[in-house]
Design a protein around this nucleic acid. Structure first.
Lengths: 232, 232
DNA sequence: CGATAACTTGACGGCGGTCAAGCGGCGTGG
DNA sequence: CCACGCCGCTTGACCGCCGTCAAGTTATCG
């Protein structure tokens, strides 16, 4: 039995392509589970056994070198799809950044179901293409931007992500004040920097009056044009 | 009228999902064209009007900052699919690195056709997922690897890409000697380095006897284990 | 054979990484 | 309620990698 009807992401996740009967069939294959902050869900280079929809919370996708250097290669928010369908192994580790709820499926089951439901595959394709676009623009940041540019770009990105949709349904105003789901180290892993450089750049922006830092995880945008100019 | 039956990538491109009648319909919508080395095919932030299959040649996908810094975010080889279906704008510029032949479609036509042919969309999905995997592992390189590690990783990557399939159909032996489709500047744009750093690292590897450089575009792998060790 | 572009090499400096110490907020336990 | 300790973060000093600028060299093509 399922709670799909009342699911918070019912109309945004790839499931939105399915009608009542179909979603019943899909939900009978999956199950909900919670992932505590810091807890892994999928391991890099492991057999790809799981795929999932994110219902609530934020998770990071990372890859690591043998000597322990880490790079965050993606971030999954509610309604995002995670895992590697149609492939033997997962190429990224998935770890929850906040307490999270996900809707997990055995990859084999999901693959079979998806191939029988083209509308679902289409939604997944659109999502994957959009994710590839985002990933590629992040490559630009990693390969060619300086530390101040990286930080500014990141903050604007977060501000948009946590924007307010209340005013208007089509336009989402960027948030002035928001809470980061990342620690300083995780920001560093996202931007290809060290924690010290991240800290110094935050302090610099605060001193220059561009941002405020009410608490460790909170950021307030005080001078958006300045931040945009810095973003490169 | 079409030459799909004799197309060099007929069995590897996404078209391989289509039967005779279907491919006839698709090919009637598209046309072949050549793209000279250095010539662009798609522009960043332009309306996404074109998609294409690569028949022959190599193309680069790039994004640029306003002040002219460039990052190569992808490389398309024969049988690869390029362009942005199901989206209003293309987020990368596509430029031919070598003289190339492509099979182009108006995006609108392609989108409509794809939605009517789930097997084609499935192939496209598998390709996109694989490309996302590759792109993410490249993020690791851009964000966390040093210049020597980047160069070593790049050369091993190229060696695999140009491997010989003659010996065995399932296993592709990495190439000892191969010709780069990239100039030094393009290698720099791929790795997030400057042309000078690329040049110096090549020279260093040559001096150390790890590689040979018979000509500007050719590379010979002399000590693969050493290169693997350097790749990080 | 000359012109031009692509590449190499050298000198130098700055950005950001490394190492180390200090700070502060929060939770725990006395 | 306060003392303490821990962990995440900040700050400082230093330095090395790699970017910048400039000159020299080698391929390529008309």
């Amino acid at each position: 039995m399922s709670t799909c009807e009342t699911c918070a992401v019912r109309n945004r996740a790839i499931c939105s392509s399915l009608d009542g009967g179909e979603i019943q069939a899909l939900s009978s294959m999956g199950r909900r589970r919670t992932v505590a902050a810091g807890e892994p869900l999928i391991w890099e280079d492991d057999d790809s056994l799981l795929v999932a929809n994110v219902i609530d919370g934020v998770l990071k996708l990372t890859t690591s070198t043998e000597d322990g250097r880490e790079q965050i290669v993606g971030v999954a928010y509610p309604s995002d799809f995670i895992g590697r369908p149609f492939g033997q192994t997962s190429r990224a580790t998935v770890v929850a950044l906040t307490d999270a709820r996900v809707c997990v499926f055995a990859r084999n089951d999901f693959d079979r179901f998806a191939r029988e439901h083209p509308e679902l595959e289409h939604k997944l394709l659109e999502r994957t293409l959009a994710e590839l676009d985002r990933t590629r623009s992040w490559m630009m940041l990693l390969g060619r931007k300086t530390a101040p540019e990286k930080i500014a770009t990141f903050l604007l990105d977060m501000s948009d992500r946590y924007g307010d949709v209340s005013a208007c349904t089509t336009f989402r105003a960027p948030a002035k004040l928001f809470t980061l789901p990342f620690s300083r180290q995780q920001v560093a892993d996202l931007l290809g920097l060290t924690i010290e450089t991240v800290s110094r750049q935050f302090t610099k922006l605060k001193q220059d009056g561009v941002i405020g830092l009410p608490s460790r995880r909170e950021v307030e945008i005080l001078n958006r044009p300045a931040l945009s100019a810095l973003a490169g």
